[in-house]
Amino acid sequence: MWKFFHKLASPPHFYRLAPRFVLGFGVVGCVLIGWGTYAGLFLAPPDYQQKDAFRIIYVHVPAAYLSMMAYSIMAISAGIGLIWRMKLAHSVAAAAAPLGAWFTFSALVTGAIWGRPMWGTWWEWGDPRVMSELLMLFLYIGYIALRVAIDEIGKADKASAVLALVGAVNIPIIHYSVEWWTSVHQGQTVVGGKMAPEMLQPLLLNILGFTLLFGAMLLYRVRTEVLHRERRSRWVKAEVLQTVGAP
């Protein structure tokens, strides 16, 4: 078991092993999303209060969940990379950030589209979850900008890892402060309730499906990052010659 992980952490092994997982996760993820979305949009009964508008939940909640998940993956692997000086962990952190930013963006846009029929406005400054997601997007943008600004990859890894950890300490505080801010302002806007199983099931399918798809894209991006970090090594040269063709 340990040997397997040890091998996985070695870049060339990871590079050769990853495509299988990318393909597997991607295919299963797409199937689950297809099934879940179909069931959610056509089979699930309309909500008692929100009628059909609640169906946006089937893409909104997975995106919002993944935006948080990506940040925790990023922060944890940044910490691992900083403490144990593991290059692969830094690659994972670097790969998770753009994906997390995309899912955060998706959560904000689908949330805005949901807000239009429900709250009567595209953008509700008073909702703590909207504000949390927006600040999350800013944190991702800051992280990516810092990475882009530093040329030397080792330095970029470590500097952005410090930023990711500082951000991780701040996220609960940000969350708490926007909640306090809105509680002074007004109550929660959307009433949460228990979901019927035939509504919940497609949601769980979609969450699982999007997570798998995220995992596939993450592994794919980690491969690119590994390639970048190891570009001077012998195995990468061999790998590139094999794929691009000998010059």
């Binding site: 309309p46 009628k51 059909d52 893409v59 995309w102 899912f103 846009v109 689908t110 949901w114 029929p117």
Partner: peptide, 21 residues
Amino acid sequence: GEYGGYIWSSVSIAFAVVLIA
């Protein structure tokens, strides 16, 4: 029903974002 436009646009945007990523 009346929310079709909202639902389809949000679903297609969510899929488009994943595709772009």
